[in-house]
Write a protein that binds this DNA or RNA. Structure first.
Length: 720
RNA sequence: GCGCGCUUAGCUCAGUUGGUAGAGCAUCUCAUUGACGUUGAGAGGGUCAUAGGUUCAAGUCCUAUAGCGCGCACCA
């Protein structure tokens, strides 16, 4: 027995050595496994892509959970003999990264984006992203991820940029991407548009003001935003509303809060006669529903708020005022004029931008959109919405837990065209060029003089949507693409089911005509012990610190046991501490087994078990069979707990204890049987536990008396 | 408004097709130069949110209610 077993297991010393050896041996690379005879050349494929962490900092507990789950699946399939590929990468995360770096620059130098300039800011962001990337790579390694590093990708590298340009061009050619002047979600703080999904609603309270535009105006209207009323071009009432029928079609010119406005009264089904006065002041420039009403009735669009969330209207009372001040001014004016009839408190959701926290202002802007309803000839007359819906309902993508299939379907029903252009600098530049009246959309820049590329960049999720196949070399027709796509599993948090899962399905079904993955396993959110969302300010647990303190294996066990898919988890350091002993327990079990079986080798076809031992073997085989079933069902939390309980409370507490007696006083045949039993069960327990606690099992395996032994990572999975 | 989830031991959570309530941590008692610096044996602790229903049998299935949480929509 090696002397190392005389001391307690030391994870900090062991883990980096083991990881480096796995990398050096090339076991993370499927080709190497085939070359070395560990995997059959014609073996079935198991592929998975890492959800690329944002290069906005370092990994948090959610990443630790994801990485562990993905590594468990990967290691399990590799041991099962699959040609296994797990591709790592990082995400440039566009707005998230840019606003992070802008924040740092502002804090340190007091400079804003415009002061720094595009080129310099991009340089600074690249430097930050590089640093963050390197930190993340180190952390992913620390967590034991058996990812194929030679295939590592970045959502903003050259190859992925080609994929983005190719996708954009194809979608434009098919009429799916169009440029349009519409009301979009504008984030005044980030100075960019954002998509519907990037809005976070917070509950707040507002005031509903009821008033008339002027003394002569026949209808009272109600609004929570009086300051926008200078942009009204219509008043909408329900077509069946008897109170207002006589006024429909009439037009009024009014002096309102220092501005001259023209309002036409229209009848529209969208109006709820029971809300407020049953009459809506229509502000087409600053409301999505009003924009639509205006489209139906041909009402003019009058913007009155600018990109800085200040009044742009030509009124001495309001011009250049901030929204809140303008609101107060209008209310004051209404009161002074005797027009205000009522003001009452009302619950109101406040729309804020996910990344910057800025209050979102709907503004009309010329932007690029993805049409989700257009029927596609080359996809059998189906729209992107149809393709997305059918991929889950009919084409075989299974979402775990299943209830999210309903959430997904519901989201698709409410889906509007996707605004993909952003007014930020860090990201994939929109591949469109302009020259006076000409517009050129292409994969490469147009030839000739005077072309100027679109200043905007694309929503980060546009490039993320291509991830399952852009990492495999698309648009080139690579062997990787043919071999590993569709991927088997996509493992990610349920919080990005719309952002990412849905967009990947959209891109893959449209561009490749196939699903991006067969199963989407959605994990829950990691929360602090008190249930609050994990953030650094609230003392979130740092996974890497936990690795250093308790060992990676302990951390991995702590995020697996008892945590099913889709459910949030309250994480505490106690929980991690609770599993640190397990690795050492395995270590000590091994010490006992090896010291009691000196000179003994695992005999491949040993069949002379004593009656007692044969029974124990049978019981263990039953565990193996249960594990096999539960692994296939993605019930890793059950497997981890089961193996933990078996190793500790059955194998150590019972089998090892009774072995002391047998090995001391038993017959030679019983001793032989028991030694074979101990070695055999320990060997198989190590194999079964390897995907969960890879480091300690590999380190022990090195000293196991097993003939024709390989590294544990490429050993074959036990069969029952 | 529509939809979803959760409610089980002091805490964090399991409980697969219905078949006598489980784990880890915490608490208490005893043992322990032991393979175990990170040990073992044992104990206490639960009317499984509430009320109905189905069933020979319900933590599990159905209905309703409550509390907590979440998603989507609305938000004049």
């Amino acid at each position: 027995m090696d002397a190392k077993f005389l001391k307690p297991y030391n994870p900090t010393e062991t883990e980096p050595k083991i990881y480096e050896k796995w990398v050096a041996d090339g076991f993370f690379k499927p080709e190497t496994c085939v070359e070395k005879g560990m995997t059959k050349a014609d073996a079935p494929v198991f592929s998975i892509v890492q959800p690329p962490p944002n290069v906005t900092g370092t990994l948090h507990m959610g990443h630790a959970l994801a990485t562990t789950l993905e590594d468990i699946m990967t290691r399990y399939h590799r041991m099962k003999g699959f040609r296994t590929l797990w591709i790592p990468g990082t995400d440039h995360a566009a707005i998230a990264t840019q606003s992070k770096v802008e924040g740092i620059i502002y804090k340190e130098e007091g400079k804003r984006r415009q002061d720094v300039g595009r080129e310099e800011l991009l340089k600074r962001i690249d430097a930050y992203a590089k640093q963050s990337h390197d930190a993340i790579v180190g952390q992913v390694k620390r967590l034991g991820a058996s990812v194929n590093w030679s295939r590592e990708a970045f959502t903003l590298d050259e190859k992925r940029n080609l994929a983005v340009r190719t996708a954009f061009k194809a979608m434009h050619d098919d009429g799916l991407i169009y440029r349009g002047y519409r009301v979009v979600n504008w984030d005044p703080k980030g100075q960019t548009t954002i998509s519907d999904d990037e809005i976070v609603y917070t509950e707040g309270s507002g005031t509903l003001y009821t008033f008339k535009y002027s003394k002569d105006f026949p209808i009272s209207i109600a609004t929570t935003r009086p300051e926008t009323k200078v942009g009204d071009t219509g008043v909408a009432v329900h077509p069946d509303d008897a109170r207002y029928k006589q006024f429909v079609g009439k037009e009024y010119a009014i002096d309102f809060a220092g501005a001259k406005i023209k309002v036409k009264i229209v009848a529209d089904e969208a109006v709820d006669p029971a809300f407020g006065t049953g009459a809506v002041g229509v502000t087409p420039a600053h409301s999505f529903t009003d924009w639509e009403i205006a489209q139906r009735h041909d009402l003019p669009i009058v913007p009155v708020i600018n990109e800085y969330a200040k009044m742009s209207v030509d009124s001495p009372l309001l011009k250049d005022k901030k929204i809140a001040d303008a609101r107060a001014a209008v209310v004051e004016w209404l009161t002074a004029q005797g027009l205000l009839e009522k003001s009452e408190p009302i619950p109101q959701n406040i729309a804020t931008a996910e990344r910057t926290g800025g209050v979102v202002e709907p503004l009309p802007k010329l932007q690029w959109f993805v049409d989700v309803n257009k029927k596609l000839e080359k996809r059998g007359g189906k729209s992107l919405k149809d393709l997305m819906r059918e991929a889950v309902s009919e084409k075989g993508i299974a979402i775990i837990p299943e209830r999210f299939e309903k959430v997904y379907a519901h989201w698709i029903e409410n889906l509007r065209d996707w605004c993909i252009s952003r007014q930020i600098w860090y990201g994939h530049r929109v591949p469109v060029w302009y020259r006076s009246e000409e517009i050129f959309v292409g994969i490469e820049a147009p030839t000739g003089e005077g072309w100027k590329q679109d200043e905007d960049t694309l929503d980060t999720w546009f490039s993320s949507g291509l991830w399952t196949f852009s990492v495999l070399g698309w648009p080139e027709k690579t062997t990787d693409l043919a071999t590993y796509h569709p991927t088997n599993v996509l493992e990610t948090g349920y919080d990005i089911i719309f952002f990412w899962v849905a967009r990947m399905i959209l891109m893959s079904t449209y561009l490749l005509g196939e699903i991006p993955f067969k199963t989407a396993y959605l994990h829950g959110l990691m929360r602090n012990a008190d249930g609050s969302k994990m953030s650094k300010s609230k003392g979130a647990i740092d996974p890497i610190e936990m690795c250093a303190k308790y060992g990676t294996d302990a951390l991995r066990m702590s995020v697996i046991v008892g945590i099913g898919p889709g459910s949030d988890t309250k994480m505490s350091e106690d929980k991690i501490r609770a599993y640190k002993n397990f690795a050492n327990k395995l270590w000590n079990i091994t010490r006992f087994v090896l010291s009691s079986t000196e000179g003994e080798q695992v005999e491949k076809d040993f069949a002379s078990y004593s009656a007692d031992d044969a029974k124990l073997v049978g019981e263990f085989r039953a565990i193996v069979a249960e594990v096999a079933k539960e692994m296939e069902e993605f019930k890793f939390y059950l497997v981890a707990e089961k193996l933990y309980a078996y190793a500790w409370h059955e194998f150590a507490d019972i089998i090892l204890e009774q072995s002391k007696d047998i090995l001391a006083k038993g017959s030679d045949a019983d001793k032989k049987s028991r030694k074979q039993l101990l070695l055999r069960i320990l060997a198989d327990v190590l194999k079964l536990l390897h995907p969960f606690v890879p480091f300690v099992t590999e380190e022990i395996w090195a000293d196991m008396p097993v003939p024709e032994k390989r590294s544990l990572i490429v050993e074959s999975w036990p069969t029952s």
